[in-house]
Design a binder for these strands. Structure first.
Length: 595
RNA sequence: GGUUCCGUAGCUCAGUUGGAUAGAGCAACAGCCUUCUAAGCUGUGGGUCGAGCGUUCGAGUCGCUCCGGAAUCACCA
């Protein structure tokens, strides 16, 4: 539609003023609600070409377009704004066209499609997932669907941080205080079980630190010298040396954690195509660093540590290998990136990681480039903001961390309670009810998180439960369910609707508003992929649902006597439902048939 | 201190490559179920877009300065 306008306006300018108008001069936007019209041309930039006043220019162009283009039925000019009205029959034609496309709004990967690797989740295996991880997982998963819908080949991947001193801490605590207990023996999820030992380690460590500080040590010294810390370090050395007993313990505890993570991932509805483990990739990272050192890209200091000097790029020197030869965080990320490139030859690699690591990813990409990996230009840090509580950051010390499993459980419980209170889902089996309430509770949570601009920090107030009314996931799900319900009733009562356009249907303003939004959907999918913004999709869902609900409220669909009009409204409703379903799909939100 | 990000209604958030009188939801108040699902629809009140200066026909949006908040600058991850 915009293309058509753009072409027409360019012709008008050429014919009227004998000049070519570049794209930057043709500013077309949707007409604001308070004015009459569908599309607005901002004429100010063109008055330089026309050498007439903005008003006169607008009138001349409007006149030209109305006469030459059938789809444009009228225009009005307010100041420098040319408001164009699209003829109602053009809208029914558009609806017909959209309705006929089977996978409307989604694009197949063409010959030139990019391969995009998306890394998200990236958990440590010493703690269960919390609200911060939920934001990460939901963003990553949604991005993967959006990028795929825009026609890219997407690989969803995860890097599990399964080694390092933090893992050794929970291992040590279990060794010393576990008495052979297991998640099974305690009836606990494995990640929570292991996480408790990590917390226990910190508690016992603090008990050891206190007397040392009282005896005159600085807190830093005391921490380093505490017996538990020493033991944790020696456990890490044993692990790196491949000590069988340590490795066995590590494998056993990690397997507990993975079992727990699987449950959480399944509950959240996220998936991966390929999972990498830091315990594999750090070795490759070390090789790459040593190789690059030989090639002269890096610096070896006297103590044996290896660094890269990025001061020329206004960054610092960065450690890549410790003096004892062991790997740091950066080392394994270098290795992971190289392995992934070898695995997939990606065009782009998107890291979904919090903004606290902005510096890290700047260094990562630059380092790989210095090492000669040109593809590192395709690395992109998708940096999202923290989830904060009203009091500020979540602190595990103060027990204010919002646990992922707990939150999901609560959301479903709230959905269930609300459903009961509203007297919904009569006649459904318990299994069906539970499934729908699960979809709604998760829909509320996911939408709540995804509607916010990813790069901003967001606030979550545990005391106020997430809304189910207004601009929420359930609102959109509800709109979808309503539409499905109408379509089901149509089917049950034998009302059919043709997919072909009827010329004599003149849509009303509400209907046109909905069609306009439906018309935006494919462009929106592309834009969301380009901007990497699930929030765009979420806000679109809301707008579409709201617009449809107004139409639904004001007009009858099945009760319409005029068969052509009824058929048109059914087509409109069906496509709206389809688009809402697809948009929710892009957010990783399920759409219930009834609620 | 350096770098990066954020600041919009009481609260949570939208606001397109700079366009018209800055929008939603929640909360508050007032209405609408005999009719396809009221988790809905309609209305009322609520704003110095952190502050100032600049760029321009036009600034919430771009630039500079300042104020406030966050992150980061580890032989942690």
């Amino acid at each position: 539609m915009e293309k058509l306008l753009r072409k027409g306006i360019r012709e008008a300018v050429r014919s009227l003023y004998g000049a070519d108008a570049g794209d930057d001069l043709l500013q077309i936007q949707k007409t604001r609600r308070e004015f009459e019209g569908d599309f607005t041309l901002v004429v100010f930039p063109l008055s330089k070409i026309s050498h007439h006043s903005p008003e006169q220019t607008a009138n001349e162009i409007g006149e030209y377009l109305t006469q030459r283009i059938d789809a444009i039925s009228g225009f009005n000019v307010i100041k420098g704004f040319l408001n164009l009205t699209i003829s109602p029959s053009e809208w029914t034609t558009r609806l017909d066209g959209m309705h006929a496309v089977s996978n409307y709004g989604f694009f197949e990967p063409g010959p030139g499609a990019e391969t995009v690797v998306i890394e998200y989740s990236s958990p440590n295996t010493n703690k269960p997932l919390h609200l911060g991880h939920i934001r990460n997982n939901l963003l990553g998963y949604s991005l993967s669907r959006i990028c795929a819908a825009a026609g890219n080949n997407v690989i969803r991947t995860n890097i599990v941080n399964d080694r390092g001193i933090h893992i050794c801490k929970s291992m040590l605590a279990w060794q010393q205080y576990g008495n052979g207990r297991t998640p099974d023996s305690e009836g606990m999820k494995g990640d929570h079980f292991v996480g408790d030992y990590y917390v226990l380690f910190e508690k016992k460590l603090r008990e050891q630190i206190e007397p040392l500080v009282a005896a005159g040590s600085t807190p830093e010294e005391a921490r380093e010298n505490a017996p538990l810390m020493q033991e944790a370090r020696s456990l890490l050395l044993k692990w790196e040396a491949g000590d069988p007993e340590t490795v066995n313990l590590w494998q056993m505890m990690n397997s507990w954690v993975y079992k727990g993570f699987d449950v959480t991932y399944r509950a959240l509805g996220v998936e991966f195509d390929k999972i990498y483990y830091e315990s594999d990739t750090y070795k490759v990272g070390k090789e790459i660093v040593l190789h690059s050192l030989e090639e002269g890209h890096l610096i070896r200091r006297e103590d044996g540590s290896v660094w890269i000097d990025l001061t020329a790029d206004k960054l610092d020197q960065k450690l890549l290998l410790r003096s004892d030869g062991t790997a740091v965080y950066m080392t394994q990320d270098l290795g992971t990136a190289v392995i992934r490139y070898n695995d997939y030859h990606f065009d782009r690699h998107i890291y979904v990681v919090g903004n606290e690591q902005n510096y890290h990813f700047q260094v990562l990409a630059l380092t790989l480039l210095r090492m000669g990996y040109e593809w590192a230009k395709g690395l992109h840090h998708f940096s999202y903001g923290m989830v904060e509580l009203p009091e500020g950051k979540m602190k595990s010390r103060e027990g204010t961390v919002v646990d992922a499993d707990d939150l999901v459980t609560e959301m479903i419980a709230t959905a269930t309670a609300m459903s009961q209170e509203l007297g919904k889902l009569g006649g459904y089996s318990d299994i069906e009810k539970n499934n729908i309430c699960r979809q709604i509770g998760l829909g509320a949570l996911k939408y709540f998180i995804l509607k916010v601009d990813p790069k901003k920090n967001m606030t979550f107030n545990p005391k106020e439960s997430i809304d189910f009314n207004g601009n929420t996931g359930p609102f959109i799900q509800y709109t979808y369910a309503r539409i499905r319900s109408v379509l089901k009733k149509a089917e049950d009562t034998g009302v059919t609707f043709s997919s072909r356009k009827d010329d004599n249907v003149i849509p009303n303003q509400k209907e046109i508003s909905v069609i306009k939004l439906l018309n935006d959907f494919p462009g929106l999918v592309r834009e969301a992929a380009a901007e990497l913004s699930p929030a765009l999709i979420a806000n679109y869902c809301y707008e579409l649902a709201r617009e449809f609900n107004q139409f639904y409220h004001d007009y009858s669909i099945l009760g319409e006597e005029d068969g052509n009009l009824r058929s048109f409204r059914l087509r409109l409703s069906e496509l709206t439902g389809r688009v809402l379903g697809k948009a929710l799909f892009l957010l990783g939100i399920e759409a219930p048939e009834r609620m």
